[in-house]
């Protein structure tokens, strides 16, 4: 569910960029070029983000960590090491 919401959020974000971005450049002589630029930007950025997101959605392999890295992650990312 959270995955679906994230995809919907980013899709709506880039769609808004494509639709309302040209409004910032309104009353200019090159509005068709500006519209083309914003649409292409939204499509390519959304596609790249989507590929990166879906590739990490179902990872086949996990990362390989050593002891020092685990201690650093534990102290920095909020995963405390338990006693015992």
């Amino acid at each position: 569910m959270e995955v679906f919401l994230t995809i919907v959020f980013f899709t709506i974000f880039w769609a808004a960029v494509a639709k309302y971005g040209p409004i910032l450049f309104t009353k200019q002589p090159h509005d068709d070029l500006v519209r083309c630029i914003f649409l292409l930007t939204a499509v390519v950025c959304w596609l790249f983000w989507l590929c990166c997101y879906l590739a990490q959605l179902n990872p086949l392999l996990g990362p390989k960590l050593n002891g020092n890295t685990i201690r650093i992650i534990a102290s920095s990312w909020g995963n405390p090491i338990k006693e015992g």
Binding site: Q56, G62, L65, N66, G67, I70, W77, I81, K82
Partner: peptide, 28 residues
């Protein structure tokens, strides 16, 4: 950089990570 919190976490006991040569592949 870590902005949104990693999706991977590692939860181990202290005795497990005490060994300096210890390394593990997180099970996805």
């Amino acid at each position: 950089f870590n902005l949104f919190g990693s999706s991977w976490s590692c939860r181990y006991n202290e005795t497990t990570v005490y060994d300096p040569a210890f390394h593990v592949t997180l099970d996805s």
